[in-house]
Amino acid sequence: MSGSSKIHLPGWAPLIVLLAIAGMVALVVLPLAMVFIQALGNGVDGFLEPFSEPDTWSAIKLTLIVAGISVPLNAVFGLAAAWAVTRFQFAGKSLLMALIDLPFSISPVISGLVWVLLFGAQGFFGPALDAMGVKIIFTVTGLVLATVLITLPFVARELIPLMQEQGADEEAAAMTLGAGGWTTFFRVTLPNVKWALLYGVLLCNARAMGEFGAVSVVSGHIRGLTNTLPLHVEILYNEYDFVGAFAVATLLAGLGLLTLLAKSFLEWRFAGEIAATRRH
Protein backbone atom coordinates (compact mmCIF):
# COMPACT_ATOMS: atom_id res chain seq x y z
CA MET A 1 0.00 0.00 0.00
CA SER A 2 1.46 3.36 -0.97
CA GLY A 3 1.99 5.99 1.70
CA SER A 4 -0.27 8.54 0.07
CA SER A 5 -3.38 6.38 -0.19
CA LYS A 6 -6.00 7.00 2.47
CA ILE A 7 -6.97 4.02 4.58
CA HIS A 8 -10.49 3.81 5.87
CA LEU A 9 -10.60 2.10 9.26
CA PRO A 10 -13.84 0.28 9.92
CA GLY A 11 -15.86 0.07 13.16
CA TRP A 12 -13.91 0.35 16.39
CA ALA A 13 -10.53 0.41 14.68
CA PRO A 14 -9.97 4.21 14.98
CA LEU A 15 -10.63 4.01 18.72
CA ILE A 16 -8.13 1.18 19.11
CA VAL A 17 -5.53 3.15 17.19
CA LEU A 18 -6.17 6.14 19.49
CA LEU A 19 -5.78 3.90 22.54
CA ALA A 20 -2.46 2.64 21.24
CA ILE A 21 -1.26 6.20 20.66
CA ALA A 22 -2.40 7.26 24.12
CA GLY A 23 -0.56 4.31 25.62
CA MET A 24 2.62 5.21 23.77
CA VAL A 25 2.39 8.84 24.92
CA ALA A 26 1.79 7.88 28.54
CA LEU A 27 4.46 5.18 28.71
CA VAL A 28 7.20 6.48 26.43
CA VAL A 29 6.83 10.11 25.41
CA LEU A 30 5.89 11.54 28.84
CA PRO A 31 8.72 9.90 30.82
CA LEU A 32 11.18 10.88 28.11
CA ALA A 33 9.94 14.45 28.18
CA MET A 34 10.23 14.43 31.98
CA VAL A 35 13.93 13.71 31.69
CA PHE A 36 14.45 16.87 29.68
CA ILE A 37 12.06 18.97 31.77
CA GLN A 38 13.72 17.95 35.02
CA ALA A 39 17.17 18.48 33.55
CA LEU A 40 16.26 22.04 32.63
CA GLY A 41 14.48 22.65 35.97
CA ASN A 42 17.21 25.11 37.13
CA GLY A 43 17.70 26.71 33.75
CA VAL A 44 20.54 26.22 31.31
CA ASP A 45 23.18 26.96 33.91
CA GLY A 46 21.83 24.25 36.17
CA PHE A 47 21.72 21.89 33.23
CA LEU A 48 25.39 22.57 32.40
CA GLU A 49 26.61 22.41 35.99
CA PRO A 50 27.28 18.66 36.19
CA PHE A 51 29.33 18.93 33.01
CA SER A 52 31.81 21.16 34.74
CA GLU A 53 32.69 18.34 37.13
CA PRO A 54 35.62 16.09 36.15
CA ASP A 55 33.72 13.02 37.45
CA THR A 56 31.07 13.50 34.77
CA TRP A 57 33.66 13.75 32.06
CA SER A 58 35.50 10.69 33.26
CA ALA A 59 32.16 8.83 33.26
CA ILE A 60 31.56 9.93 29.66
CA LYS A 61 35.09 8.91 28.70
CA LEU A 62 34.77 5.54 30.39
CA THR A 63 31.43 4.84 28.73
CA LEU A 64 32.97 5.62 25.35
CA ILE A 65 35.96 3.39 26.07
CA VAL A 66 33.81 0.46 27.24
CA ALA A 67 31.50 0.73 24.22
CA GLY A 68 34.45 1.32 21.92
CA ILE A 69 35.98 -2.00 22.99
CA SER A 70 32.87 -4.16 23.39
CA VAL A 71 30.98 -3.13 20.26
CA PRO A 72 33.74 -4.02 17.75
CA LEU A 73 34.36 -7.26 19.67
CA ASN A 74 30.70 -8.21 19.40
CA ALA A 75 30.48 -7.11 15.76
CA VAL A 76 33.28 -9.54 14.92
CA PHE A 77 31.83 -12.25 17.14
CA GLY A 78 28.34 -11.72 15.71
CA LEU A 79 29.58 -12.00 12.13
CA ALA A 80 31.63 -15.10 12.88
CA ALA A 81 28.81 -16.77 14.82
CA ALA A 82 26.18 -15.96 12.18
CA TRP A 83 28.46 -17.24 9.44
CA ALA A 84 29.20 -20.47 11.30
CA VAL A 85 25.57 -21.08 12.19
CA THR A 86 24.14 -20.36 8.75
CA ARG A 87 26.83 -21.93 6.56
CA PHE A 88 27.75 -25.14 8.35
CA GLN A 89 26.21 -28.16 9.98
CA PHE A 90 28.05 -29.13 13.12
CA ALA A 91 27.51 -30.85 16.43
CA GLY A 92 26.46 -28.39 19.11
CA LYS A 93 24.95 -25.90 16.66
CA SER A 94 21.67 -25.56 18.54
CA LEU A 95 23.63 -25.22 21.78
CA LEU A 96 25.57 -22.32 20.24
CA MET A 97 22.31 -20.70 19.14
CA ALA A 98 20.91 -21.06 22.65
CA LEU A 99 24.09 -19.60 24.16
CA ILE A 100 23.88 -16.58 21.87
CA ASP A 101 20.35 -15.95 23.14
CA LEU A 102 21.19 -16.53 26.79
CA PRO A 103 22.08 -12.90 27.68
CA PHE A 104 18.60 -11.89 26.45
CA SER A 105 16.92 -14.27 28.84
CA ILE A 106 18.92 -13.93 32.04
CA SER A 107 18.88 -10.99 34.39
CA PRO A 108 21.70 -8.47 33.78
CA VAL A 109 22.59 -8.75 37.45
CA ILE A 110 23.51 -12.39 36.83
CA SER A 111 25.60 -11.37 33.83
CA GLY A 112 27.61 -9.15 36.17
CA LEU A 113 27.65 -11.51 39.07
CA VAL A 114 29.19 -14.40 37.08
CA TRP A 115 32.33 -12.33 36.55
CA VAL A 116 32.54 -11.53 40.26
CA LEU A 117 32.12 -15.24 41.04
CA LEU A 118 34.87 -16.08 38.56
CA PHE A 119 37.37 -13.28 39.03
CA GLY A 120 36.38 -11.54 42.29
CA ALA A 121 38.57 -11.64 45.41
CA GLN A 122 36.61 -14.64 46.75
CA GLY A 123 35.95 -15.94 43.23
CA PHE A 124 37.07 -19.10 41.50
CA PHE A 125 40.17 -17.63 39.85
CA GLY A 126 40.42 -14.70 42.28
CA PRO A 127 43.35 -15.89 44.43
CA ALA A 128 45.34 -17.05 41.39
CA LEU A 129 44.81 -13.74 39.59
CA ASP A 130 45.59 -11.85 42.77
CA ALA A 131 48.90 -13.70 43.08
CA MET A 132 49.78 -12.62 39.51
CA GLY A 133 48.75 -9.06 40.28
CA VAL A 134 45.91 -9.08 37.76
CA LYS A 135 42.76 -7.23 38.73
CA ILE A 136 39.55 -7.65 36.78
CA ILE A 137 36.67 -6.84 39.05
CA PHE A 138 36.32 -3.11 39.89
CA THR A 139 38.41 -2.25 36.81
CA VAL A 140 37.74 -1.27 33.21
CA THR A 141 38.44 -4.89 32.18
CA GLY A 142 35.54 -6.07 34.32
CA LEU A 143 33.24 -3.42 32.86
CA VAL A 144 34.16 -4.51 29.33
CA LEU A 145 33.61 -8.19 30.15
CA ALA A 146 30.18 -7.51 31.62
CA THR A 147 29.21 -5.29 28.69
CA VAL A 148 30.43 -7.80 26.09
CA LEU A 149 28.33 -10.50 27.72
CA ILE A 150 25.22 -8.33 27.87
CA THR A 151 25.44 -7.15 24.26
CA LEU A 152 26.53 -10.50 22.81
CA PRO A 153 23.27 -11.33 20.97
CA PHE A 154 22.60 -8.03 19.20
CA VAL A 155 24.72 -8.35 16.06
CA ALA A 156 24.38 -12.13 15.69
CA ARG A 157 20.60 -11.95 16.10
CA GLU A 158 20.35 -9.37 13.31
CA LEU A 159 22.55 -11.34 10.92
CA ILE A 160 21.40 -14.94 11.40
CA PRO A 161 17.90 -14.65 9.84
CA LEU A 162 19.20 -12.58 6.94
CA MET A 163 22.12 -14.89 6.16
CA GLN A 164 19.84 -17.89 6.47
CA GLU A 165 17.49 -16.38 3.94
CA GLN A 166 20.25 -15.39 1.54
CA GLY A 167 21.82 -18.85 1.55
CA ALA A 168 25.36 -19.81 0.57
CA ASP A 169 24.91 -19.92 -3.20
CA GLU A 170 26.50 -16.53 -3.87
CA GLU A 171 29.56 -17.51 -1.89
CA ALA A 172 29.75 -20.81 -3.76
CA ALA A 173 29.43 -18.93 -7.05
CA ALA A 174 32.25 -16.58 -6.05
CA MET A 175 34.48 -19.55 -5.29
CA THR A 176 33.82 -21.27 -8.63
CA LEU A 177 34.65 -17.93 -10.29
CA GLY A 178 38.09 -18.07 -8.69
CA ALA A 179 37.68 -15.86 -5.62
CA GLY A 180 39.57 -16.84 -2.46
CA GLY A 181 38.15 -16.85 1.06
CA TRP A 182 38.92 -13.24 1.98
CA THR A 183 37.92 -11.90 -1.43
CA THR A 184 34.61 -13.73 -1.14
CA PHE A 185 34.11 -12.36 2.36
CA PHE A 186 34.86 -8.72 1.51
CA ARG A 187 33.20 -8.63 -1.91
CA VAL A 188 30.20 -10.92 -1.45
CA THR A 189 29.39 -11.86 2.15
CA LEU A 190 30.00 -8.51 3.83
CA PRO A 191 28.25 -6.26 1.27
CA ASN A 192 25.21 -8.53 1.41
CA VAL A 193 24.81 -8.08 5.17
CA LYS A 194 26.22 -4.58 5.66
CA TRP A 195 22.90 -2.90 6.54
CA ALA A 196 21.90 -5.60 8.98
CA LEU A 197 25.40 -5.43 10.45
CA LEU A 198 25.20 -1.66 10.84
CA TYR A 199 21.78 -1.92 12.41
CA GLY A 200 23.02 -4.59 14.81
CA VAL A 201 26.02 -2.43 15.73
CA LEU A 202 23.74 0.56 16.42
CA LEU A 203 21.54 -1.46 18.77
CA CYS A 204 24.58 -3.08 20.35
CA ASN A 205 26.14 0.34 20.94
CA ALA A 206 22.99 1.79 22.47
CA ARG A 207 22.81 -1.09 24.91
CA ALA A 208 26.55 -1.07 25.65
CA MET A 209 26.43 2.60 26.63
CA GLY A 210 23.15 2.33 28.52
CA GLU A 211 23.73 -0.92 30.42
CA PHE A 212 23.27 -0.56 34.16
CA GLY A 213 22.68 -3.83 35.99
CA ALA A 214 25.63 -5.97 34.98
CA VAL A 215 28.03 -3.05 35.00
CA SER A 216 26.82 -1.98 38.42
CA VAL A 217 27.81 -5.34 39.89
CA VAL A 218 31.40 -5.35 38.61
CA SER A 219 32.10 -1.63 38.76
CA GLY A 220 32.55 -0.92 42.46
CA HIS A 221 31.30 2.63 41.75
CA ILE A 222 34.71 4.23 42.14
CA ARG A 223 34.10 7.81 41.09
CA GLY A 224 36.32 9.03 38.33
CA LEU A 225 37.65 5.51 37.78
CA THR A 226 34.98 2.84 37.21
CA ASN A 227 31.85 4.93 36.91
CA THR A 228 30.03 4.78 33.60
CA LEU A 229 27.28 7.23 32.64
CA PRO A 230 24.30 5.18 33.89
CA LEU A 231 26.10 4.57 37.20
CA HIS A 232 26.95 8.23 37.43
CA VAL A 233 23.27 9.10 37.00
CA GLU A 234 22.43 6.81 39.90
CA ILE A 235 25.10 8.32 42.15
CA LEU A 236 23.93 11.87 41.45
CA TYR A 237 20.34 10.84 42.07
CA ASN A 238 21.17 9.13 45.34
CA GLU A 239 22.94 12.32 46.42
CA TYR A 240 19.68 14.24 45.82
CA ASP A 241 21.24 16.13 42.91
CA PHE A 242 18.12 15.59 40.80
CA VAL A 243 18.89 18.25 38.23
CA GLY A 244 22.41 16.89 37.78
CA ALA A 245 21.13 13.31 37.50
CA PHE A 246 18.60 14.24 34.85
CA ALA A 247 21.08 16.44 33.01
CA VAL A 248 23.45 13.48 32.65
CA ALA A 249 20.49 11.27 31.83
CA THR A 250 19.68 13.51 28.85
CA LEU A 251 22.94 12.30 27.34
CA LEU A 252 21.73 8.70 27.53
CA ALA A 253 18.25 9.57 26.33
CA GLY A 254 19.78 11.60 23.52
CA LEU A 255 21.90 8.63 22.57
CA GLY A 256 18.80 6.46 22.34
CA LEU A 257 16.99 9.03 20.22
CA LEU A 258 20.04 9.43 18.00
CA THR A 259 20.22 5.67 17.46
CA LEU A 260 16.56 5.61 16.50
CA LEU A 261 17.07 8.55 14.17
CA ALA A 262 20.12 6.97 12.53
CA LYS A 263 18.22 3.73 12.03
CA SER A 264 15.22 5.48 10.48
CA PHE A 265 17.49 7.56 8.28
CA LEU A 266 19.33 4.46 7.04
CA GLU A 267 16.06 2.70 6.34
CA TRP A 268 14.73 5.70 4.45
CA ARG A 269 17.89 6.51 2.53
CA PHE A 270 18.72 2.96 1.50
CA ALA A 271 15.25 1.43 1.39
CA GLY A 272 15.72 0.06 -2.14
CA GLU A 273 19.09 -1.42 -1.43
CA ILE A 274 18.00 -2.95 1.87
CA ALA A 275 15.03 -4.57 0.16
CA ALA A 276 17.29 -5.88 -2.62
CA THR A 277 19.57 -7.67 -0.18
CA ARG A 278 16.58 -9.54 1.22
CA ARG A 279 14.65 -10.23 -1.94
CA HIS A 280 16.07 -12.35 -4.70
Binding site: G167, D169, E170, T176, L177, P191, T277, H280
Partner: peptide
Protein backbone atom coordinates in the same frame (compact mmCIF):
# COMPACT_ATOMS: atom_id res chain seq x y z
CA UNK B 1 42.03 -28.84 -7.10
CA UNK B 2 39.89 -26.52 -4.97
CA UNK B 3 36.73 -25.00 -6.44
CA UNK B 4 38.55 -21.75 -7.21
CA UNK B 5 41.37 -23.53 -9.03
CA UNK B 6 39.17 -25.68 -11.26
CA UNK B 7 38.10 -23.03 -13.75
CA UNK B 8 34.68 -24.64 -13.99
CA UNK B 9 31.71 -22.38 -14.68
CA UNK B 10 28.69 -23.07 -12.51
CA UNK B 11 25.15 -21.81 -13.03
CA UNK B 12 22.82 -22.20 -10.04
CA UNK B 13 19.11 -22.91 -10.01
CA UNK B 14 18.33 -19.69 -8.18
CA UNK B 15 20.89 -17.73 -10.19
CA UNK B 16 23.10 -16.78 -7.19
CA UNK B 17 23.85 -13.42 -8.77
CA UNK B 18 25.70 -10.96 -6.53
CA UNK B 19 22.73 -8.85 -5.54
CA UNK B 20 24.64 -5.69 -4.69
Amino acid sequence: LSARERRVGMVFQHYALFRH
